[in-house]
């Protein structure tokens, strides 16, 4: 009976969600041009329409996907991922680690315990890095935002490229044999026995999904709104092709500049993507913009500082250097190919 109740509730929720979602564009137009009675084609009205349409759209997509991914994640605990990865050979391990990075629950504040947990359990260093690169960069928030604003092609491209960078960078880091650049205490860390996993049923998984929604949406909604507001401003006021001269394909230095600019910046995908969309509209090249975005959410100064606890400076620099180089190459590739 409980299962039936949950299923019915879930179906009703999804139906209602769809009904509202498909009418948002009409609502945006109605709100801007009828309710506020603004003139068609003006700067301000174009910015207002962008904001009124995109904000609920992105928030609704976020709720749906975070819930779905929450359910998926209830199947993958860090302990289980570690069990899968320990004892895998390096190349296969790199690929698996990058893929598991997408679905294993991860927060950059847990990067250190996770790293130590993996390495002491015999997961190779390069494989651990593949996981650490993919987990923050290829995440459900980035994918849902990209899907919502650019469609499935760009979202898929981003996911593929993010995984590629994680796999290749991790593999290279493994080849460099930098184990001696890990702080020695890591290897002395006597890991106590892991947490016992509770058996979890479907009701528990749905609760886990709802918890994830509450947790993530309460944290990122403000960034979504700010990001869309900035995006709306650019959308309405910056002239078309304004950015083409210095963020377009012609400017060769724009890709490394975008990465250098992105690393010290720390934002989550929710805030950065509306800005990315507005930049693209004004003539910035896709490769440049994607490179900027990956640098902002994949590499961050706070993460470097956290990792410094367990890695000696040389390894921190090598790690950031290789990933940054990978992002730059991808940026150029997109600008040349597309």
């Amino acid at each position: 009976m409980r299962i039936l109740k949950w299923t019915l509730l879930l179906m009703a929720a999804v139906l209602l969600w769809g009904l509202i979602y498909w009418n948002l564009a009409a609502f945006g137009r109605w709100f801007t041009y009828s309710l506020l009675n603004m003139p068609q084609g003006g700067h301000l009205s174009s910015a207002v329409e962008f904001f009124v349409f995109e904000t609920p759209k992105v928030l609704m997509l976020l709720v749906l996907v975070v819930f779905g991914v929450g359910i998926i994640r209830s199947f993958f605990t860090p302990e289980r991922t570690r069990k899968i990865l320990s004892g895998k050979s390096e190349t296969v391990g790199n690929i698996l680690a990058a893929l598991l990075g997408v679905v294993t629950p991860f927060c950059s504040c847990s990067a250190v315990p996770l790293f130590v947990g993996f390495v002491t359990a015999g997961v190779p260093l390069g494989v651990t890095f593949s996981f650490l690169i993919s987990a923050p960069m290829v995440n459900e928030i980035a994918l849902v935002m990209l899907f919502g604003m650019f469609g499935w092609k760009v979202a898929g491209l981003y996911m593929g490229v993010g995984l590629l960078i994680a796999i290749v960078s991790g593999w290279i880091l493994g080849r460099l044999h930098m184990e001696k650049h890990i702080e020695p205490w890591v290897f002395d860390a006597r890991m106590g026995e892991a947490v016992q996993e509770d058996a979890i049923n479907w009701e528990g998984r749905i609760r886990y999904g709802l918890d994830a929604v509450r947790d993530i949406v309460s944290k990122v909604w403000i960034y979504v709104i700010l990001g869309i507001a900035v995006g709306a401003g650019i959308h309405g006021y910056v002239p078309q092709d304004f950015l083409a001269s210095f963020m377009g394909k012609g400017a060769w230095w724009s890709v490394p500049a975008a990465v250098l600019l992105g690393v010290p910046m720390y934002s989550n995908a929710a805030g950065i993507i509306p800005i990315v969309k507005a930049l693209l509209e004004k003539g910035a090249a896709l490769g440049t913009v994607l490179a900027f975005m990956m640098a902002v959410i994949g590499l961050s100064l706070p993460e470097a500082i956290i990792l410094r606890n367990i890695l000696k400076p040389k390894l921190v620099f090598t790690f950031f250097g290789i990933v940054a180089a990978g992002i730059i190459i991808i940026g150029y590739l997109f600008n040349i190919l597309l």
Partner: peptide, 23 residues
């Protein structure tokens, strides 16, 4: 962080009651 690792957890925050890791 070194003390935390002794409990064998891979994600924080963790709750320990009477020496036993709960979550």
């Amino acid at each position: 962080i070194k003390e935390i690792m002794k409990f064998g957890v891979m994600a924080t925050p963790a709750l320990v009651i009477d020496g036993q890791v709960k979550t």
